[in-house]
Design a protein around this nucleic acid. Structure first.
Lengths: 212, 212
DNA sequence: GCTAACTTGCACACCTCTGTGCAATATAAT
DNA sequence: ATTATATTGCACAGAGGTGTGCAAGTTAGC
Protein backbone atom coordinates (compact mmCIF):
# COMPACT_ATOMS: atom_id res chain seq x y z
CA UNK A 1 0.00 0.00 0.00
CA UNK A 2 2.48 2.67 -1.02
CA UNK A 3 0.76 6.04 -1.14
CA UNK A 4 1.25 6.62 -4.87
CA UNK A 5 2.57 10.00 -5.91
CA UNK A 6 0.35 12.57 -7.58
CA UNK A 7 0.16 11.99 -11.34
CA UNK A 8 2.61 13.71 -13.61
CA UNK A 9 1.48 16.94 -15.30
CA UNK A 10 1.55 15.57 -18.82
CA UNK A 11 -0.55 12.64 -17.70
CA UNK A 12 -3.16 14.93 -16.20
CA UNK A 13 -3.29 16.99 -19.39
CA UNK A 14 -3.63 13.88 -21.51
CA UNK A 15 -6.48 12.60 -19.39
CA UNK A 16 -8.35 15.84 -20.00
CA UNK A 17 -7.47 15.66 -23.68
CA UNK A 18 -8.96 12.20 -23.91
CA UNK A 19 -12.18 13.35 -22.27
CA UNK A 20 -12.46 16.28 -24.67
CA UNK A 21 -11.76 14.11 -27.68
CA UNK A 22 -14.23 11.49 -26.46
CA UNK A 23 -16.89 14.11 -25.94
CA UNK A 24 -16.69 15.47 -29.44
CA UNK A 25 -16.19 12.09 -31.07
CA UNK A 26 -19.04 10.40 -29.22
CA UNK A 27 -21.37 13.35 -29.70
CA UNK A 28 -20.82 12.90 -33.39
CA UNK A 29 -21.00 9.11 -33.38
CA UNK A 30 -21.86 7.35 -30.14
CA UNK A 31 -20.00 4.24 -31.20
CA UNK A 32 -16.74 5.86 -32.23
CA UNK A 33 -13.91 3.41 -31.60
CA UNK A 34 -11.43 3.76 -28.77
CA UNK A 35 -8.74 4.03 -31.36
CA UNK A 36 -10.49 6.94 -33.08
CA UNK A 37 -10.89 8.74 -29.77
CA UNK A 38 -7.31 8.19 -28.70
CA UNK A 39 -5.96 9.32 -32.06
CA UNK A 40 -8.13 12.41 -32.07
CA UNK A 41 -6.60 13.22 -28.68
CA UNK A 42 -3.16 12.77 -30.25
CA UNK A 43 -2.42 9.63 -28.24
CA UNK A 44 -2.19 5.94 -28.90
CA UNK A 45 -4.96 3.52 -28.13
CA UNK A 46 -2.69 1.79 -25.66
CA UNK A 47 -2.21 4.98 -23.70
CA UNK A 48 -5.91 5.56 -23.36
CA UNK A 49 -6.20 2.23 -21.64
CA UNK A 50 -3.63 3.51 -19.18
CA UNK A 51 -6.02 6.25 -18.14
CA UNK A 52 -9.33 4.42 -18.28
CA UNK A 53 -9.87 0.77 -17.50
CA UNK A 54 -12.52 0.44 -20.02
CA UNK A 55 -14.79 2.03 -22.58
CA UNK A 56 -17.37 1.89 -19.81
CA UNK A 57 -15.17 3.82 -17.41
CA UNK A 58 -14.52 6.52 -19.99
CA UNK A 59 -18.20 6.97 -20.69
CA UNK A 60 -19.08 6.99 -17.02
CA UNK A 61 -16.63 9.80 -16.45
CA UNK A 62 -18.06 11.74 -19.35
CA UNK A 63 -21.57 11.38 -18.02
CA UNK A 64 -20.47 12.41 -14.53
CA UNK A 65 -18.91 15.61 -15.84
CA UNK A 66 -22.05 16.39 -17.80
CA UNK A 67 -24.21 15.79 -14.76
CA UNK A 68 -22.14 18.28 -12.82
CA UNK A 69 -22.56 20.99 -15.45
CA UNK A 70 -26.26 20.41 -15.92
CA UNK A 71 -26.85 20.63 -12.24
CA UNK A 72 -25.07 23.96 -11.97
CA UNK A 73 -26.88 25.21 -15.00
CA UNK A 74 -30.37 24.27 -13.92
CA UNK A 75 -30.01 25.96 -10.57
CA UNK A 76 -28.75 29.18 -12.16
CA UNK A 77 -32.08 29.92 -13.82
CA UNK A 78 -34.16 31.95 -11.43
CA UNK A 79 -36.53 34.01 -13.59
CA UNK A 80 -39.97 34.38 -12.06
CA UNK A 81 -41.67 34.24 -15.47
CA UNK A 82 -41.75 30.60 -16.64
CA UNK A 83 -41.52 31.72 -20.26
CA UNK A 84 -38.33 33.65 -19.58
CA UNK A 85 -36.95 30.86 -17.44
CA UNK A 86 -37.57 28.32 -20.16
CA UNK A 87 -36.01 30.58 -22.76
CA UNK A 88 -32.95 31.11 -20.61
CA UNK A 89 -32.60 27.42 -19.90
CA UNK A 90 -32.68 26.73 -23.62
CA UNK A 91 -30.02 29.36 -24.23
CA UNK A 92 -27.83 27.91 -21.51
CA UNK A 93 -28.18 24.41 -22.85
CA UNK A 94 -27.24 25.71 -26.25
CA UNK A 95 -23.88 26.79 -24.91
CA UNK A 96 -23.37 23.33 -23.51
CA UNK A 97 -24.21 21.75 -26.85
CA UNK A 98 -21.38 19.24 -26.88
CA UNK A 99 -22.26 18.02 -23.40
CA UNK A 100 -25.93 17.80 -24.26
CA UNK A 101 -25.14 15.95 -27.45
CA UNK A 102 -22.92 13.39 -25.86
CA UNK A 103 -25.37 12.74 -23.05
CA UNK A 104 -28.20 12.38 -25.52
CA UNK A 105 -26.21 10.20 -27.87
CA UNK A 106 -25.11 7.88 -25.08
CA UNK A 107 -28.59 7.75 -23.62
CA UNK A 108 -30.11 6.78 -26.93
CA UNK A 109 -27.52 4.33 -27.99
CA UNK A 110 -26.13 2.25 -25.22
CA UNK A 111 -27.14 0.55 -22.04
CA UNK A 112 -26.34 3.68 -20.06
CA UNK A 113 -29.89 4.82 -19.86
CA UNK A 114 -29.82 4.72 -16.09
CA UNK A 115 -26.62 6.74 -15.75
CA UNK A 116 -27.65 9.38 -18.23
CA UNK A 117 -31.12 9.64 -16.78
CA UNK A 118 -29.52 10.45 -13.45
CA UNK A 119 -27.23 13.00 -15.08
CA UNK A 120 -30.07 14.74 -16.82
CA UNK A 121 -32.38 14.62 -13.82
CA UNK A 122 -31.75 18.18 -12.61
CA UNK A 123 -32.64 19.68 -15.96
CA UNK A 124 -35.60 17.37 -16.24
CA UNK A 125 -36.91 18.43 -12.84
CA UNK A 126 -36.46 22.07 -13.76
CA UNK A 127 -38.43 21.62 -16.97
CA UNK A 128 -41.25 19.82 -15.18
CA UNK A 129 -41.43 22.58 -12.63
CA UNK A 130 -41.49 25.27 -15.30
CA UNK A 131 -44.20 23.47 -17.21
CA UNK A 132 -46.30 23.21 -14.11
CA UNK A 133 -45.95 26.89 -13.35
CA UNK A 134 -46.40 27.89 -16.97
CA UNK A 135 -49.65 25.98 -17.21
CA UNK A 136 -50.90 27.24 -13.86
CA UNK A 137 -50.38 30.79 -14.94
CA UNK A 138 -51.98 30.14 -18.34
CA UNK A 139 -48.78 31.11 -20.10
CA UNK A 140 -48.08 27.69 -21.61
CA UNK A 141 -50.43 25.49 -23.57
CA UNK A 142 -52.89 23.39 -21.62
CA UNK A 143 -54.01 21.11 -24.43
CA UNK A 144 -51.29 18.64 -23.48
CA UNK A 145 -50.84 17.05 -20.06
CA UNK A 146 -47.90 18.41 -18.09
CA UNK A 147 -45.72 15.28 -18.33
CA UNK A 148 -46.37 15.04 -22.06
CA UNK A 149 -45.46 18.65 -22.61
CA UNK A 150 -42.33 18.35 -20.47
CA UNK A 151 -41.17 15.33 -22.43
CA UNK A 152 -41.94 17.04 -25.72
CA UNK A 153 -39.89 20.05 -24.72
CA UNK A 154 -36.99 17.81 -23.78
CA UNK A 155 -37.05 15.82 -26.98
CA UNK A 156 -37.40 18.80 -29.24
CA UNK A 157 -34.67 20.71 -27.42
CA UNK A 158 -32.35 17.81 -27.81
CA UNK A 159 -33.10 17.61 -31.50
CA UNK A 160 -32.57 21.29 -32.13
CA UNK A 161 -29.41 21.52 -30.07
CA UNK A 162 -27.94 18.41 -31.63
CA UNK A 163 -28.86 18.95 -35.24
CA UNK A 164 -28.07 22.57 -35.82
CA UNK A 165 -24.92 24.02 -37.18
CA UNK A 166 -23.28 25.24 -33.99
CA UNK A 167 -21.20 27.79 -35.88
CA UNK A 168 -24.20 29.73 -37.07
CA UNK A 169 -24.56 32.91 -35.01
CA UNK A 170 -28.36 32.77 -34.96
CA UNK A 171 -28.45 29.17 -33.79
CA UNK A 172 -29.09 29.91 -30.12
CA UNK A 173 -31.89 32.18 -31.24
CA UNK A 174 -33.42 29.33 -33.21
CA UNK A 175 -33.22 26.96 -30.27
CA UNK A 176 -34.91 29.41 -27.93
CA UNK A 177 -37.70 30.28 -30.33
CA UNK A 178 -38.37 26.63 -31.06
CA UNK A 179 -38.75 25.76 -27.41
CA UNK A 180 -41.11 28.66 -26.82
CA UNK A 181 -43.22 27.57 -29.77
CA UNK A 182 -43.50 24.09 -28.35
CA UNK A 183 -44.53 25.52 -25.00
CA UNK A 184 -47.50 26.98 -26.85
CA UNK A 185 -46.54 30.58 -27.50
CA UNK A 186 -47.31 31.97 -30.93
CA UNK A 187 -44.22 33.18 -32.74
CA UNK A 188 -45.24 36.79 -32.20
CA UNK A 189 -45.46 36.29 -28.44
CA UNK A 190 -42.05 34.69 -28.44
CA UNK A 191 -40.69 37.47 -30.59
CA UNK A 192 -42.10 40.12 -28.25
CA UNK A 193 -40.76 38.32 -25.21
CA UNK A 194 -37.24 38.12 -26.64
CA UNK A 195 -37.38 41.73 -27.78
CA UNK A 196 -38.35 42.83 -24.26
CA UNK A 197 -35.59 40.73 -22.68
CA UNK A 198 -32.59 40.81 -25.00
CA UNK A 199 -30.35 39.56 -22.20
CA UNK A 200 -31.78 36.06 -22.59
CA UNK A 201 -30.03 35.49 -25.88
CA UNK A 202 -26.78 36.71 -24.43
CA UNK A 203 -27.13 34.37 -21.51
CA UNK A 204 -23.96 32.49 -20.74
CA UNK A 205 -23.26 29.99 -17.98
CA UNK A 206 -21.40 32.66 -15.99
CA UNK A 207 -23.68 35.64 -16.37
CA UNK A 208 -27.10 34.29 -15.43
CA UNK A 209 -29.20 37.21 -14.34
CA UNK A 210 -32.20 37.46 -12.15
CA UNK A 211 -35.32 39.28 -13.27
CA UNK A 212 -37.31 40.31 -10.26
CA UNK B 1 -29.46 -17.19 -70.47
CA UNK B 2 -32.41 -19.40 -69.60
CA UNK B 3 -35.51 -17.31 -68.89
CA UNK B 4 -35.81 -18.26 -65.22
CA UNK B 5 -39.26 -19.22 -63.98
CA UNK B 6 -41.28 -16.95 -61.75
CA UNK B 7 -40.32 -17.35 -58.07
CA UNK B 8 -42.20 -19.78 -55.90
CA UNK B 9 -44.97 -18.44 -53.67
CA UNK B 10 -43.25 -19.20 -50.38
CA UNK B 11 -40.15 -17.45 -51.63
CA UNK B 12 -42.12 -14.36 -52.50
CA UNK B 13 -43.77 -14.35 -49.09
CA UNK B 14 -40.43 -14.78 -47.36
CA UNK B 15 -38.95 -11.88 -49.27
CA UNK B 16 -41.75 -9.66 -48.03
CA UNK B 17 -41.33 -11.05 -44.53
CA UNK B 18 -37.67 -10.14 -44.57
CA UNK B 19 -38.44 -6.61 -45.66
CA UNK B 20 -41.01 -6.21 -42.88
CA UNK B 21 -38.68 -7.64 -40.29
CA UNK B 22 -35.84 -5.45 -41.54
CA UNK B 23 -38.02 -2.38 -41.40
CA UNK B 24 -39.02 -2.85 -37.81
CA UNK B 25 -35.61 -4.07 -36.69
CA UNK B 26 -33.70 -1.26 -38.38
CA UNK B 27 -36.16 1.40 -37.26
CA UNK B 28 -35.40 0.30 -33.75
CA UNK B 29 -31.67 -0.09 -34.22
CA UNK B 30 -30.15 0.94 -37.54
CA UNK B 31 -27.30 -1.48 -37.08
CA UNK B 32 -29.29 -4.60 -36.28
CA UNK B 33 -27.40 -7.64 -37.54
CA UNK B 34 -28.46 -9.62 -40.59
CA UNK B 35 -28.87 -12.58 -38.32
CA UNK B 36 -31.27 -10.69 -36.04
CA UNK B 37 -33.32 -9.55 -39.02
CA UNK B 38 -33.48 -13.03 -40.57
CA UNK B 39 -34.44 -14.62 -37.29
CA UNK B 40 -37.13 -12.05 -36.61
CA UNK B 41 -38.53 -12.97 -40.03
CA UNK B 42 -38.46 -16.61 -38.96
CA UNK B 43 -35.72 -17.51 -41.42
CA UNK B 44 -32.06 -18.37 -41.29
CA UNK B 45 -29.32 -15.92 -42.04
CA UNK B 46 -28.27 -18.06 -44.98
CA UNK B 47 -31.70 -17.78 -46.55
CA UNK B 48 -31.70 -14.02 -46.32
CA UNK B 49 -28.57 -13.99 -48.42
CA UNK B 50 -30.52 -15.99 -50.98
CA UNK B 51 -32.94 -13.10 -51.36
CA UNK B 52 -30.59 -10.16 -51.07
CA UNK B 53 -27.00 -10.07 -52.26
CA UNK B 54 -25.97 -7.85 -49.51
CA UNK B 55 -26.88 -5.75 -46.50
CA UNK B 56 -26.62 -2.87 -48.93
CA UNK B 57 -29.13 -4.41 -51.30
CA UNK B 58 -31.60 -5.00 -48.49
CA UNK B 59 -31.37 -1.43 -47.33
CA UNK B 60 -31.62 -0.07 -50.83
CA UNK B 61 -34.85 -1.98 -51.33
CA UNK B 62 -36.21 -0.69 -48.05
CA UNK B 63 -35.42 2.88 -48.99
CA UNK B 64 -36.98 2.42 -52.43
CA UNK B 65 -40.24 1.17 -50.93
CA UNK B 66 -40.29 4.10 -48.53
CA UNK B 67 -39.67 6.54 -51.36
CA UNK B 68 -42.66 5.12 -53.21
CA UNK B 69 -44.97 5.54 -50.24
CA UNK B 70 -43.77 9.03 -49.41
CA UNK B 71 -44.28 10.11 -52.94
CA UNK B 72 -47.86 8.87 -53.02
CA UNK B 73 -48.47 10.42 -49.66
CA UNK B 74 -47.13 13.87 -50.46
CA UNK B 75 -49.19 14.17 -53.60
CA UNK B 76 -52.37 13.17 -51.78
CA UNK B 77 -52.41 16.34 -49.70
CA UNK B 78 -54.33 18.97 -51.58
CA UNK B 79 -55.77 21.31 -48.95
CA UNK B 80 -55.77 24.92 -50.03
CA UNK B 81 -55.01 26.15 -46.52
CA UNK B 82 -51.30 25.58 -45.79
CA UNK B 83 -52.06 25.04 -42.12
CA UNK B 84 -54.48 22.27 -42.89
CA UNK B 85 -52.20 20.78 -45.49
CA UNK B 86 -49.31 20.71 -43.06
CA UNK B 87 -51.49 19.17 -40.37
CA UNK B 88 -52.71 16.51 -42.75
CA UNK B 89 -49.22 15.74 -43.95
CA UNK B 90 -48.11 15.26 -40.36
CA UNK B 91 -51.05 12.94 -39.71
CA UNK B 92 -50.27 10.91 -42.82
CA UNK B 93 -46.64 10.60 -41.90
CA UNK B 94 -47.69 9.43 -38.48
CA UNK B 95 -49.41 6.45 -40.03
CA UNK B 96 -46.23 5.65 -41.90
CA UNK B 97 -44.21 5.82 -38.72
CA UNK B 98 -42.18 2.67 -39.30
CA UNK B 99 -41.23 3.82 -42.79
CA UNK B 100 -40.34 7.26 -41.55
CA UNK B 101 -38.32 5.80 -38.73
CA UNK B 102 -36.31 3.45 -40.87
CA UNK B 103 -35.59 6.14 -43.43
CA UNK B 104 -34.52 8.53 -40.71
CA UNK B 105 -32.44 5.95 -38.91
CA UNK B 106 -30.65 4.91 -42.07
CA UNK B 107 -30.14 8.49 -43.15
CA UNK B 108 -28.58 9.43 -39.82
CA UNK B 109 -26.48 6.39 -39.40
CA UNK B 110 -24.97 5.06 -42.53
CA UNK B 111 -23.46 6.20 -45.77
CA UNK B 112 -26.86 6.15 -47.43
CA UNK B 113 -27.44 9.84 -47.05
CA UNK B 114 -27.75 10.27 -50.79
CA UNK B 115 -30.30 7.46 -51.25
CA UNK B 116 -32.47 8.52 -48.36
CA UNK B 117 -32.31 12.15 -49.36
CA UNK B 118 -33.70 11.13 -52.73
CA UNK B 119 -36.40 9.04 -51.08
CA UNK B 120 -37.49 11.86 -48.84
CA UNK B 121 -37.31 14.48 -51.56
CA UNK B 122 -41.05 14.51 -52.39
CA UNK B 123 -42.03 15.19 -48.79
CA UNK B 124 -39.29 17.73 -48.50
CA UNK B 125 -40.48 19.58 -51.58
CA UNK B 126 -44.02 19.55 -50.27
CA UNK B 127 -42.93 21.01 -46.95
CA UNK B 128 -40.94 23.76 -48.64
CA UNK B 129 -43.88 24.63 -50.79
CA UNK B 130 -46.23 24.74 -47.80
CA UNK B 131 -43.85 26.92 -45.86
CA UNK B 132 -43.59 29.34 -48.74
CA UNK B 133 -47.36 29.59 -49.06
CA UNK B 134 -47.88 29.73 -45.30
CA UNK B 135 -45.47 32.63 -44.96
CA UNK B 136 -46.88 34.44 -48.00
CA UNK B 137 -50.36 34.29 -46.54
CA UNK B 138 -49.09 35.33 -43.11
CA UNK B 139 -50.36 32.11 -41.59
CA UNK B 140 -46.94 30.78 -40.59
CA UNK B 141 -44.22 32.52 -38.67
CA UNK B 142 -41.98 34.89 -40.58
CA UNK B 143 -39.27 35.33 -37.97
CA UNK B 144 -37.36 32.43 -39.53
CA UNK B 145 -36.23 32.20 -43.14
CA UNK B 146 -38.23 29.74 -45.22
CA UNK B 147 -35.45 27.13 -45.61
CA UNK B 148 -34.72 27.28 -41.90
CA UNK B 149 -38.35 26.81 -41.00
CA UNK B 150 -38.76 23.96 -43.48
CA UNK B 151 -35.76 22.16 -42.05
CA UNK B 152 -36.97 22.75 -38.50
CA UNK B 153 -40.35 21.27 -39.33
CA UNK B 154 -38.70 18.23 -40.85
CA UNK B 155 -36.39 17.61 -37.95
CA UNK B 156 -39.02 18.09 -35.30
CA UNK B 157 -41.51 15.90 -37.15
CA UNK B 158 -38.95 13.16 -37.39
CA UNK B 159 -38.25 13.40 -33.68
CA UNK B 160 -41.88 13.32 -32.67
CA UNK B 161 -42.82 10.51 -35.01
CA UNK B 162 -39.81 8.43 -34.04
CA UNK B 163 -39.80 8.96 -30.33
CA UNK B 164 -43.42 8.62 -29.38
CA UNK B 165 -45.18 5.53 -28.20
CA UNK B 166 -46.97 4.49 -31.36
CA UNK B 167 -49.58 2.58 -29.41
CA UNK B 168 -50.88 5.66 -27.64
CA UNK B 169 -54.16 6.70 -29.24
CA UNK B 170 -53.47 10.42 -28.89
CA UNK B 171 -50.05 10.16 -30.49
CA UNK B 172 -51.09 11.35 -33.93
CA UNK B 173 -52.77 14.29 -32.26
CA UNK B 174 -49.53 15.14 -30.50
CA UNK B 175 -47.54 14.97 -33.72
CA UNK B 176 -49.95 17.27 -35.54
CA UNK B 177 -50.12 19.83 -32.76
CA UNK B 178 -46.37 19.90 -32.42
CA UNK B 179 -45.84 20.60 -36.09
CA UNK B 180 -48.38 23.41 -36.07
CA UNK B 181 -46.69 24.95 -33.07
CA UNK B 182 -43.38 24.91 -34.87
CA UNK B 183 -44.97 26.54 -37.89
CA UNK B 184 -45.76 29.44 -35.56
CA UNK B 185 -49.37 28.91 -34.57
CA UNK B 186 -50.25 29.44 -30.95
CA UNK B 187 -51.72 26.35 -29.36
CA UNK B 188 -55.17 27.92 -29.32
CA UNK B 189 -55.05 28.54 -33.05
CA UNK B 190 -53.99 24.95 -33.62
CA UNK B 191 -56.71 23.73 -31.30
CA UNK B 192 -59.35 25.77 -33.12
CA UNK B 193 -58.11 24.58 -36.49
CA UNK B 194 -58.28 20.94 -35.49
CA UNK B 195 -61.69 21.41 -33.90
CA UNK B 196 -63.01 22.95 -37.13
CA UNK B 197 -61.52 20.15 -39.24
CA UNK B 198 -61.81 16.92 -37.28
CA UNK B 199 -61.21 14.89 -40.43
CA UNK B 200 -57.52 15.78 -40.33
CA UNK B 201 -56.89 13.57 -37.35
CA UNK B 202 -58.73 10.72 -38.97
CA UNK B 203 -56.70 11.10 -42.11
CA UNK B 204 -55.42 7.81 -43.44
CA UNK B 205 -53.33 7.10 -46.51
CA UNK B 206 -56.42 5.84 -48.37
CA UNK B 207 -58.97 8.41 -47.37
CA UNK B 208 -57.25 11.72 -48.03
CA UNK B 209 -59.93 14.32 -48.53
CA UNK B 210 -59.94 17.56 -50.36
CA UNK B 211 -61.16 20.74 -48.70
CA UNK B 212 -62.15 23.15 -51.40
C1' DG C 1 -44.89 -38.48 -57.26
C1' DC C 2 -41.28 -35.81 -59.64
C1' DT C 3 -38.52 -32.11 -60.00
C1' DA C 4 -36.86 -27.76 -59.60
C1' DA C 5 -36.99 -24.28 -56.29
C1' DC C 6 -36.21 -23.22 -51.75
C1' DT C 7 -34.31 -23.54 -46.97
C1' DT C 8 -30.93 -24.89 -43.64
C1' DG C 9 -26.74 -25.78 -40.91
C1' DC C 10 -22.05 -25.86 -40.91
C1' DA C 11 -17.48 -24.59 -42.02
C1' DC C 12 -14.71 -21.09 -43.65
C1' DA C 13 -12.09 -16.65 -44.53
C1' DC C 14 -12.18 -12.13 -43.46
C1' DC C 15 -13.08 -7.88 -41.11
C1' DT C 16 -13.26 -4.52 -37.08
C1' DC C 17 -13.17 -3.73 -32.51
C1' DT C 18 -11.85 -4.64 -27.48
C1' DG C 19 -8.69 -5.29 -23.84
C1' DT C 20 -4.01 -7.08 -22.15
C1' DG C 21 1.14 -8.21 -21.64
C1' DC C 22 5.58 -6.75 -22.53
C1' DA C 23 9.80 -4.61 -23.79
C1' DA C 24 11.65 -0.28 -25.60
C1' DT C 25 11.69 4.51 -25.42
C1' DA C 26 10.77 9.25 -23.86
C1' DT C 27 10.16 12.77 -20.33
C1' DA C 28 8.67 15.38 -15.79
C1' DA C 29 10.27 16.12 -11.48
C1' DT C 30 13.68 16.18 -8.25
C1' DA D 1 21.75 12.89 -13.77
C1' DT D 2 18.76 9.83 -12.00
C1' DT D 3 14.47 7.61 -11.63
C1' DA D 4 9.79 6.75 -11.34
C1' DT D 5 6.16 7.78 -14.39
C1' DA D 6 4.22 7.83 -19.11
C1' DT D 7 3.85 6.64 -23.77
C1' DT D 8 4.28 3.57 -27.64
C1' DG D 9 4.19 -0.31 -30.95
C1' DC D 10 3.45 -4.91 -31.46
C1' DA D 11 1.55 -9.28 -30.78
C1' DC D 12 -2.14 -11.76 -29.01
C1' DA D 13 -6.77 -13.80 -27.74
C1' DG D 14 -11.46 -13.23 -28.13
C1' DA D 15 -15.99 -11.47 -29.39
C1' DG D 16 -19.12 -10.45 -32.98
C1' DG D 17 -20.24 -9.28 -37.51
C1' DT D 18 -20.27 -10.24 -42.91
C1' DG D 19 -20.56 -12.95 -46.98
C1' DT D 20 -19.76 -17.61 -49.45
C1' DG D 21 -19.60 -22.72 -50.75
C1' DC D 22 -21.64 -26.95 -50.24
C1' DA D 23 -24.29 -31.01 -49.14
C1' DA D 24 -28.54 -32.48 -47.10
C1' DG D 25 -33.25 -31.83 -46.33
C1' DT D 26 -37.97 -29.78 -47.34
C1' DT D 27 -41.78 -28.14 -50.11
C1' DA D 28 -44.59 -25.82 -53.99
C1' DG D 29 -46.34 -26.78 -58.29
C1' DC D 30 -47.39 -29.49 -61.97
Amino acid sequence: MTASRPPRSDARANRVGILDAARSALADDPRASIDAIARSAGLSRRTLYGHFDDREALIRELVAVGAQRFNTLATSVTDADPRLALARLAALLWHEASHVQVAAAIALDEAHVTDTAAALAPVRRMVSELVRRGQDEELFRTDLAAPTLARLIEEVSRTVVSRTDASSPSAADLAVRTVLSIAGLSWREADALLAAHPDVLETRPDSAKETE
